Computed example of a mutant assay.
Amino acid sequence: MSSELTEEEMRRALFGTAQPEEQFSAPPAQDPVPEVVFTKPAVVPAAKKKAAKAFTPRLKVTLRVGNEFEGKRYELTHEADTLSSLLAEQEAVKAARKKHRYVEVVSVKSM
């Protein structure tokens, strides 16, 4: 076999033999399709079962807050839906800073 192939031989090797266009015929005429209207079936609502409430991890953050530098302080608790004590602490401090100027974290406990 020769190592040099002609362009026509390469095309046949890659794409197969050329099919003459005469073999392809025009697609057959399609019959008109009757119009179909889809409607939603009437669904009767069945008695829904209440899903069991999934366990959500909660942390209880206790804060000491006040608006005066060395004045009265109040204890405030914040419940966070997370397992991360750092995120719970940040969330509680952010919420407390909206109303109070001085915020001190006392404890972070699991509920």
Rank of each mutant, 00 (worst) to 15 (best):
A80M: 04
P20L: 09
A88Y: 06
K49V: 14
S107H: 02
E35W: 06
A26S: 09
E22R: 04
P34V: 11
V65N: 01
V33R: 15
T62P: 00
V65I: 15
K98S: 03
F69Y: 08
T6W: 07
K60G: 02
A88Q: 01
E4G: 07
T62A: 04
Q90A: 10
F38L: 15
T6Q: 02
V106G: 01
E91R: 00
Q90D: 13
P27T: 05
F55M: 05
K48W: 14
E4D: 10
E4A: 05
S85Y: 03
V105K: 00
V43D: 13
A88K: 00
L14D: 09
L86K: 12
F55Y: 08
V61R: 00
P45H: 11
E35F: 10
L76H: 04
A80L: 01
Y74F: 06
A51G: 06
K94V: 00
F69L: 08
R58Q: 05
L14S: 15
R73L: 15
Q19V: 13
L5E: 07
P28R: 03
P27W: 03
R64N: 01
V108N: 00
K40N: 14
S2T: 03
E70P: 03
L76G: 01
F15V: 05
E75V: 08
K49C: 08
A46N: 14
L76Y: 10
L86C: 11
P20R: 13
F55T: 11
K60P: 00
H78V: 00
P57R: 05
A26V: 05
D81I: 11
L76M: 07
E89L: 13
E79V: 15
T77N: 02
P27A: 04
E75N: 12
P32I: 10
Y102G: 08
K53S: 07
E79Q: 14
K40F: 13
F24M: 06
V65Y: 01
P45S: 12
V36L: 14
P41R: 15
E68G: 02
E89H: 07
K72Y: 11
F24E: 06
K53E: 04
A29M: 12
Q90F: 14
A96M: 02
E75K: 08
P28L: 03
L83I: 08
S2Q: 10
E4K: 09
E91Q: 07
E4I: 10
L63N: 04
T39Y: 12
P41K: 10
T56G: 00
R73M: 11
E79A: 10
P28F: 02
T17N: 08
K40D: 14
E104P: 01
A54S: 07
A26C: 04
N67E: 02
V44H: 15
R73Y: 12
L63Q: 06
S107T: 12
R12S: 11
T62Q: 03
S84M: 13
E79Y: 14
V106M: 08
K50D: 10
R73D: 07
L76E: 05
L63F: 03
F38Q: 06
K40E: 13
A18P: 04
T17W: 05
K99E: 10
K48S: 13
T6G: 01
E91I: 02
F38V: 09
